[in-house]
Amino acid sequence: MKKVSPFSPTARILVQIVMIILVVASLLPLYNVISASLKSIDEYPTNPVLLPKAPIFDNYKYAAFAGHLIRFTVNSLIYVPVGVALYVVICLMAGYAFGKMRFAFRRSIFLLVLFMSIFPQLLLATQVSKLISLMHLTNTGLGVILSWVAYFSPFGTYIMTTYFADMPYELVEAARIDGASQVRILVSIMAPLALPMIATIAIIGFQSMWNELPFSMLILQQESLRTVTLGIAVLRGEYGLRVPILSAALVIAMIVPLLIFLLFQRYITLGVTAGAMKG
């Protein structure tokens, strides 16, 4: 990255040592879980630390089927993409309106949306679950999707707004002189230009919804409907569940988030800088 540096060679080695200790320390909990998942229920209490003597996959079989981890993952893979699609459309439209259109109370409404983006879920949870039940959407995918889209949209809208606000106004002006409608300007000019940012908020939305707990906990009470995150949280609370089985369930639950990281690393990096309110 850099050629010149204020580090002496000794300092460099010290820094490397510090970094290696840090990275190893942060990987140990993962090691704990992965190695436990490969040990039999009898082996784990006698050998919690070292690698398994002979790795077994029974825990995975149990977690995947009896523990329903496969079903929960499939549920998440259905709810989350639908939620993200809705979320992207809503944030795109609202972001464009705030960033590039003129209307009364624009700034006040925008600040209100920004304020809502920091609300804690527990502040809303009781009433959201009541509302969902009034709409007869308890124990439905649609119910949880609606609650997610509503809760996460303010933040996505905020990001899209700052992005559109920074775009040159001349683009809109030129299109309007040509007589294009606002919908056409958004769909055929602005949205294509904003594609990298759309991908970024899609990833942010995906991660937020994938890892969401309180709303899904209240809305999806039926076991067969659980998301993978909810499934893990419930397993954790199950009294007497053995560590190797819980560990195998955790490893299964890690697969999709890690895949997303490997596939979309660039947008995750963009998301951090856009998401942290571009300092």
Binding site: T229, R236, L250, M254, L258
Partner: peptide, 9 residues
């Protein structure tokens, strides 16, 4: 990436 629920467990 793993989120609060997985990290908590």
């Amino acid at each position: 990436l793993l989120g609060y629920v997985l990290m908590g467990v």
